[in-house]
């Protein structure tokens, strides 16, 4: 486990991350952390597309207890698989889950 700090306009928050970079406690996440979390994943500018995916991941997690896989994202988020990989070249579900402060989505597809 790693402890890191995220700076937002509201102040500095200490966040615990798993070894592979996911929030240990999703409840400490706030939307204003997104720009900094995205920058750490190599996303310099958070576009509307990024926001759409991150918010969708977050709401899926809050209702279902787990984030969607890439296929489910492509089918239900309103962003196609092709666009998902353009937005998150290093793996849409994985990277968006890190930015949305939720655990890594499970599933093989």
């Amino acid at each position: 486990m790693t402890t890191t700090t995220v700076t937002t306009p509201a102040g500095v928050t200490s966040v615990e991350l798993t070894d592979d970079g996911f929030f240990v406690d999703p409840s400490v996440w706030t939307e204003d952390m997104v720009p900094e979390l995205a920058a750490r994943e190599g996303i310099a500018t958070v576009t509307d597309g990024h926001w759409q995916v991150v918010r969708f991941m977050r709401s899926e997690f809050l209702t279902k207890g787990t984030g969607p896989s890439v296929r489910a994202l492509g089918k239900t988020s309103g962003v196609s698989v092709k666009e998902l990989y353009e937005l998150f070249p290093k793996g849409p579900a994985k990277i968006a889950a890190r930015i949305a402060g939720i655990p890594k989505p499970k599933g093989c597809i």
């Binding site: 896989s69 492509g74 196609s80 698989v81 092709k82 990989y85 070249p89 599933g107 597809i109």
Partner: peptide, 17 residues
């Protein structure tokens, strides 16, 4: 289990790049 049929799966894999 939400595993796509082969044709759809290949389309998706192509879309992943």
């Amino acid at each position: 289990l939400d595993i796509p049929p082969i044709a759809e799966f290949l389309e998706m894999i192509a879309d992943t790049g």
